[in-house]
Structure formats: structure tokens, C-alpha cells
Measured scan of single mutants.
Amino acid sequence: TETRTFDSEEEAKKAQKEAEKQGRTVTITRRDDRWEVRFD
């Protein structure tokens, strides 16, 4: 599991799309003013 933090939802969604192309499961969580993206 890898976790990355982004400043914008746009960036988080971009990372999510990339990871899903690779067949990974992605979870996006809102953390205050940041977006946390978890790759499984």
C-alpha cells in the first residue's frame, strides 16, 4: 500500500486514473485542505 497526498482534487483524480489503468485499487480521502490517495 502506498499513500500520497495532493493539494488539489484534480491532482488526486489524475493519480487515481493512472493507478486504475495499472489495475490498482485507489481510495481518495479528504484530509482538511489536502487530498490523500491510497494505492492498494
Rank of each mutant, 00 (worst) to 15 (best):
T25W: 06
D40F: 10
K21M: 13
F39T: 07
W35A: 01
T5A: 07
F39E: 07
R38E: 09
K21Y: 08
D7V: 07
E10S: 06
V37I: 08
Q16I: 12
D32R: 07
D40N: 11
K13N: 08
K14H: 13
R31N: 08
Q22N: 12
K21D: 13
S8L: 05
Q22K: 09
R34W: 10
E18P: 01
A19S: 04
I28A: 01
S8M: 03
S8R: 05
K21E: 14
D32M: 08
T1S: 13
R24Y: 15
T3Q: 07
D32P: 04
V26H: 00
I28C: 07
R30I: 07
R38K: 12
D33K: 05
T27W: 04
K13C: 13
A19H: 05
E18H: 08
E20L: 14
T25G: 06
D33T: 05
Q22R: 10
S8T: 15
T25P: 06
R30L: 10
G23T: 02
E10A: 11
K17H: 12
D7A: 11
E9L: 15
G23C: 07
E20P: 01
A19V: 04
F6L: 02
T3F: 14
I28Y: 00
G23Y: 04
V37H: 00
R31Q: 08
K13F: 14
T27C: 12
D32S: 07
D7E: 10
E2G: 10
A19P: 01
A19G: 09
T29W: 04
R38H: 12
T1D: 11
R4F: 13
E11M: 07
E20W: 11
V26Y: 02
R38G: 05
S8Q: 04
T27Y: 04
W35G: 00
D40G: 11
R4P: 02
E20F: 10
Q16S: 09
Q22G: 08
G23W: 03
F39W: 11
A15D: 02
W35E: 01
D32T: 05
A12I: 01
E9M: 06
E9I: 09
T27A: 05
G23R: 03
D7L: 11
I28F: 00
E20M: 13
E2W: 14
W35F: 05
R4C: 11
E36S: 02
F39G: 04
D33R: 04
F39M: 12
D40P: 06
K21N: 12
E11G: 06
V26L: 02
G23Q: 03
A19R: 02
T27P: 01
D7F: 14
T25F: 07
R31L: 11
V26A: 15
R34F: 13
V26W: 00
D7P: 08
D40R: 07
R31K: 13
T1A: 13
T5S: 10
R4I: 13
E20D: 04
R24F: 15
W35D: 01
E18D: 11
K21H: 10
D33A: 04
E11H: 03
E11K: 06
E20A: 11
K14S: 11
I28T: 02
E2Y: 14
T25A: 10
T25S: 11
K13W: 11
E10Q: 09
K17D: 11
D33V: 03
W35P: 01
E9Y: 15
